[in-house]
Computed example of a mutant assay.
Amino acid sequence: MKAGLFLLYERKEETVISRIQHRKECEGYARLDRRPYHERKSRYQVACDRLLRGGLCERDIVVDIGAGYTELDFCLRTEHGWRGRYVPIDGWVDGTDIEKWAPEFDFHWFAALELLEHLHDPKRLVEELKARAEFGFVITTPNPDVVDVLAMDPTHITPLSRDLLESWGIYTTLHNFYGTHEDGIAGMWTRRDVR
């Protein structure tokens, strides 16, 4: 019994150490130079538009996966007057490894902005969100038909085409997110048709 408890404690300690290391790596990524908010806000505005068009209301909870500096929350509140609950999930905030993360509970809405291209298996997360979203989710990602997604950032590992996202049941639209015509994709999945 003592050997089993020691092994359990050792595994838990390894998990804590790996979470701390992961958080440090994510914090280093978060400190990289970023364009100012006003140059990047188009993706947040599009996501807000999709959420509101989908029926987002003041009673709803939005879980922002890969929340970064929580700019989706800022956009929802300052530009749209939204007063609902916002829950940020991000490795540099809490050590969450989004490659393995899955929501423990159902939530009204999820957002994964500029995130899926960072994952080895983005479809796994999409399926988790479909299972746990009471109303739906929004995503944004670079458009690989226009920009070299892998060259944009060393942590970009999975380019996602519009056709691929649509094959997963996500309704997509093209947008100007990075300075080139139609260089970004916004996607939305809902339990009901709100396009």
Rank of each mutant, 00 (worst) to 15 (best):
M1N: 10
M1H: 11
K2D: 04
K2E: 04
G4K: 14
Y9G: 10
E10Y: 14
R11F: 08
K12A: 10
T15D: 09
I20F: 12
Q21T: 06
Q21E: 12
K24P: 01
K24N: 09
C26F: 01
R31S: 13
R34K: 14
R35D: 04
H38N: 08
S42W: 02
D49W: 00
D49V: 00
L52K: 05
L52W: 00
G54P: 07
C57Y: 00
R59K: 10
R59M: 05
I61Y: 02
D64L: 06
L76T: 04
T78M: 06
G81R: 04
R83H: 04
R85L: 12
R85Q: 12
R85W: 01
I89M: 05
I89E: 02
D90C: 14
W92Y: 15
W92H: 15
V93K: 14
T96G: 04
D97S: 02
D97H: 04
D97Y: 00
E104I: 04
F107S: 15
W109Y: 11
F110V: 07
A111D: 02
L119W: 05
R124W: 02
R124P: 05
L125D: 03
L129G: 14
R132L: 00
V138Y: 03
I139S: 07
T140L: 04
T141Q: 10
P142F: 00
V146Q: 13
A151L: 13
M152T: 02
M152V: 00
D153H: 15
P154Y: 03
T155H: 12
R162D: 08
E166P: 11
I170P: 07
Y171I: 06
T173H: 13
L174F: 03
L174V: 08
N176D: 08
N176Q: 10
E182R: 15
D183Y: 04
G184H: 02
A186D: 08
D193A: 11
V194L: 09
